[in-house]
Nucleic acid binder design. Sequence first.
DNA 1: GCCAACGTTGGC
DNA 2: GCCAACGTTGGC
Length: 140
Amino acid sequence: MAFWLFKSEATTWSWEDQVAKGDAGEEWDGVRNYQARNFMREMKIGDRGFFYLSQKDKAVVGIVEVCAESHPDSTTDDDRWECVDIKAVRAFSVPVTLDQIKSDDRLADMVLVRNSRLSVQPVADREWQVVCELGRTDPD
DNA sequence: GCCAACGTTGGC
DNA sequence: GCCAACGTTGGC
């Protein structure tokens, strides 16, 4: 099982919006970046991801799970763009802020730190464990 | 609100 | 196929 990070803006798609979709989940649509799309193509059902809020919050706030593998993005007719579906698994006990992540030596290589603009990114196993620990949340 | 970093587009 | 111009993202 692989780990990922999905970036959203709370004003566009919040954690509460994601939770409201329940186990049915929702398309992670709107991605128009090849790197991000390619990562989604690699995802398998059951893979886990962090739900990160950019801009105002700048924090990881919860864990999601991939519940449908890559398929055409329903928000465009352009067949270059695909997306997966994800569902909320659980909220973090405490959000883990970008500041915390940047100041933790163990997370220095996170894509979030190295390439802040990429909206869908891989997370290393070790990074997954550390961020869950900082969020005082069960990593499984 | 600014701007650096990055990705994409289009002229040559 | 290169690269200048432009648009967007996201941290500050």
